[in-house]
Design a protein around this nucleic acid. Structure first.
Length: 432
RNA sequence: GUGGCCGUAGCUCAUCAGGUAGAGCACCGGAUUGUGGCUCCGGAGGUGGCGGGUUCGAGACCCGUCGGCCACCCCA
């Protein structure tokens, strides 16, 4: 096929999936609103420098996954690979850091990766960022609000919370040196990927999927032994708060995050239902990032949820969100009938705008129009033919009520001006 | 970037020692000149992803390429 296709890894989201997306968006928006978070809408494109400085120069994202290009001025721009950097940039630029500030956003992100289940090149995240509070009660809030979202989505049973602290930057550096020394001495036992990471990002070796590497790490120095006192205290306090709130979690000492800006608390919500891409939401504290990007020192904590992965979970659990079928289908045969029907239905829409009324358009015999009416899933057909036009009436025929199932449709022909009242009666269960 | 599997009608899939394709569902029409769903009858729809090669002949074999899925990697 020489037809133009969607770019690899950038998918269309079709009408039979969008109800799940809307359900997700509405649920998240409602919960975040209830915690006092305000929505911020950010550009998809930022200066390339912003991501280089925040995510980290040697991360895979910056080194090989960004969609970067020069605009007509020769400035290097990048389609955002994640949301935090842009949100911090906006918070600094728009002076949003003066008070504790709770923000959220949703939208597409772009990374040049090999597509796979739960991973695409254009994907969507919902991000939550809380600025200005250094204490772990803010960490707890962010975690608890995400847990509430899973509950409201009916996903609480399929995700678990993994928790860790990676300490201060200084503590991490000391640990990093110890880890590298240990692994360097056993370099031959490391798999190829981990040997490479020994140079680029040694901490990432901790969450290697290679069993041999994991076994080797059993004898390695532990990050916990290198933590600074403040990080230890904060982590203990966070655990105390989560315990008090009845929020379960698993401490995973080998949980680290891929982006450079994290410190102290890190966490991931993971599932076993999605194959290899099991992280459905992840976040942590990033106290140094605002200052690093030129703002005044401001502690912060945030998270990002992967919307595709959440929708996959929703689909896996077949939670009953369905495409809404039509309420009524308009059958009209002949030019005069089509005109009458159009005008009458427009009048009905003026008053009953919550009804889904699908008008038959184009040609079609009476029979074929009735077939379309049936296929539409509509509860009833509104029929205009020669007789109705001549008499100034409309025939209302139930298509799938109990009565209709029995093969004895009790259709009724009513004066046109009674159509609205007839519909109100028929859809009484729907009307407020 | 690496690897495995896969690419035949709108969808799900067949067929065959290599001799230029078929079913189900969906779609359209008819049986029922204005009444859907069930049933029956009929119809339309494929340059077999694309490009090369082997062969008298390839959808079937080989190579390349593009695309899909899954995994590595990465991460949401």
């Amino acid at each position: 096929m020489s037809n133009i296709r969607a770019v690899r890894g950038m998918n269309d989201i079709l009408p039979d999936e969008t109800p799940h997306w809307q359900h997700l968006e509405q649920t998240v928006g409602r919960v975040l609103g209830a915690y006092g978070y305000g929505e911020i809408r950010l550009p998809l494109v930022e200066s390339t420098r912003l991501f280089q400085r925040s995510i980290g120069e040697v991360t895979d994202i910056v080194e090989k996954e960004m969609y970067s290009f020069e605009d007509r001025n020769g400035d290097s721009l990048t389609l955002r690979p994640e949301g935090t950097a842009g949100c911090v940039r906006a918070a600094i630029q728009q002076n949003l850091l003066g008070v504790p500030r709770r923000l959220w956003y949703a939208g597409p992100m772009f990374r040049y990766e090999r597509p796979q289940k739960g991973r695409q090149r254009q994907f969507h995240q919902i991000g939550v960022e809380a600025f200005g509070v250094a204490s772990p009660d803010m960490d707890a809030e962010v975690i608890l609000l995400s847990a509430r979202i899973w509950r409201q989505l009916g996903l609480a049973g399929s995700v678990t919370l993994q928790l860790n602290t990676i300490g201060s930057s200084a503590a991490r550096q000391a640990y990093r040196a110890a880890l590298v020394a240990y692994l360097e001495a056993r370099r031959g036992e490391l798999d190829e990927d981990s040997q490479r990471r020994l140079q680029s990002n040694p901490l990432r070796i901790l969450d290697s999927k290679n069993p041999q590497t994991q076994a080797l790490l059993d004898g390695a120095p532990a990050l916990a032994d290198y933590l600074d006192a403040e990080s230890q205290d904060d982590f203990a306090r966070l655990r105390e708060l989560l315990d008090a709130a009845g929020q379960g979690y698993v401490v995973n000492p080998r949980l680290v995050r891929g982006l450079d800006y994290y410190n102290k608390t890190v966490f991931e919500w993971v599932t076993d239902d999605l194959g290899a891409q099991g992280t459905v939401c992840a976040g942590g504290r990033y106290d140094g990032l605002v200052e690093q990007l030129g703002g005044k020192p401001t502690p912060a904590v945030g998270l990002a949820m992967g919307m595709e992965r959440l929708v996959l979970l929703l689909l896996a659990h077949a939670s009953g969100v369905a495409e809404r079928p039509a309420d009524a289908y308009v059958v009209a045969v002949g030019a005069a009938a089509q005109r009458e029907a159009l005008v009458a239905v427009e009048a009905v829409r003026d008053r009953l705008d919550e009804l889904v009324i699908v008008q038959h358009t184009g040609a079609g015999s009476f029979k074929s129009q009735m077939k379309k009416a049936d296929k539409s899933g509509a509860r009833m057909a509104l029929i205009w033919g020669e007789d109705e036009v001549a008499a100034g009436t409309v025939t209302v025929k139930p298509l799938r009520d109990e009565a209709a199932q029995g093969g004895d449709p009790e259709q009724q022909t009513v004066p046109r001006e009674h159509l609205e009242a007839t519909l109100v009666a028929a859809f009484a269960d729907r009307m407020g």
